[in-house]
Amino acid sequence: MPNSTTVTEFLLTRFSDVWGLRVLHATLFLLMYLATLMGNLLIVIATTFDWNLHSPMYFFLRNLSVIDMCYISVIIPKACVIFLLDTTAISMAGCAAQIFLVFLFATVELLFLTIMAYDRYVAICQPLHYPVVMNPRVCVQMTLASVLSGLANSALHTGNTFWLPFCQSNVVPQFFCDVPSLLKLSCSDTLINQIFLFISMVVIAGGCFAFITMTYIHIFSNVLKFPTRGERGKAFSTCVPHILVVTMFVFSAGAVYMKPTSNLPTIQDTINSVFYSIVPPFLNPIIYSLRNKQIKEAVKRFMRRMVYSGKKNRMFEALPFC
């Protein structure tokens, strides 16, 4: 950190200072957090222990679920603490770690969503080439490339942000640390940082969104050629929620990160941040588990095995020892 930095901690901002509303906000966040963890954990368990789901699509779905659990765990627990307790402080190191992890998981999630769209494109439009194109080695390579890209992107923005001196107000107009809000607190020129943010959003978020859009255009054009309405409906029910979540994710993040720092409205910024940081991890299990017959069947089989195992253990414990 430069020697000119005088701020040693930041103060995060609640949605409201009224105690009843603070409890309500913490309760809503906690319920979404628990639902997200439970839904994604079920997906991870089902796709790991059911051999019928050991395919590239479910491999990336399992990775996405792990990223979702990590992503939301970086934000919601700390937010609930500042909602319920009197202190809203977060240390400089804690703020830097939160920004690094948020950038990392958000970038990797967007890249995974892009890969999953490509996986659906190959499966629907080029089914005969699917085993060759999406072989296990390629899947692992794309996963590693996504993680390394996320690490590079998060390290770049975290380093550029905390290289700046913070000698003005230490009140972050946000319920978690993010780069645009911190740039408003710096007492030096942040033009270079804003340029890096803009380029990153255009290249990564814009590039992924454009690729996903073109992919689904090709998918929908092929789906319309399916002979039966049931097959078309099944394909649309899988693809449409996916692209809606991606659209919400990209546009809400772009509304925050691509605006000039001086023009960021606090309320709008806070609302948009909820839609790119909390809502996608919450919706992904609903889209990919409740609407997926194979996932539901795998979860039922796992639960039956757990119940049977529990009954068997209790019967063994009840047997008298000789």
Score class of each variant (00 low, 15 high):
Ala235Gln: 06
Val140Ser: 00
Arg62Lys: 08
Lys225Ile: 02
Ala123Phe: 10
Asn52Glu: 14
Cys80Glu: 03
Gln141Glu: 07
Cys95Glu: 02
Ile192Glu: 09
Thr190His: 07
Asp17Phe: 13
Met258Asp: 01
Asn193Met: 10
Met303Asp: 08
Val66Thr: 05
Ser91Gln: 03
Ser289Thr: 09
Ser181Asp: 08
Phe49Asn: 01
Thr87Asn: 03
Leu37Tyr: 15
Leu12Gly: 07
Leu104Tyr: 15
Thr114Glu: 02
Thr261Pro: 02
Asn63Leu: 10
Asn284Phe: 02
Ala253Leu: 13
Ile204Thr: 13
Thr114Tyr: 03
Glu231Asn: 04
Gly207Leu: 13
Tyr308Cys: 14
Phe220Ile: 09
Ile267Asp: 13
Asn272Met: 10
Leu34Ile: 15
Ser252Leu: 04
His218Ser: 04
Cys177His: 11
Val74Pro: 01
Leu319Gln: 08
Phe29Asn: 06
Gly207Gln: 11
Leu30Lys: 04
Ile199Met: 13
Phe60Leu: 12
Leu244Gln: 03
Leu148Lys: 04
Gly254Lys: 03
Arg301Tyr: 08
Asp86His: 11
Ala155Ser: 14
Val274Met: 09
Val133Met: 05
Thr161Ser: 12
Phe105His: 02
Thr266His: 00
Met258Gln: 01
Val44Trp: 15
Cys187Trp: 10
Phe198Ile: 05
Gln194Leu: 02
Trp19Glu: 12
Val102Pro: 00
Ala96Lys: 15
Val279Arg: 01
Thr158Met: 07
Gly20Asn: 13
Ile243Lys: 03
Val307Thr: 05
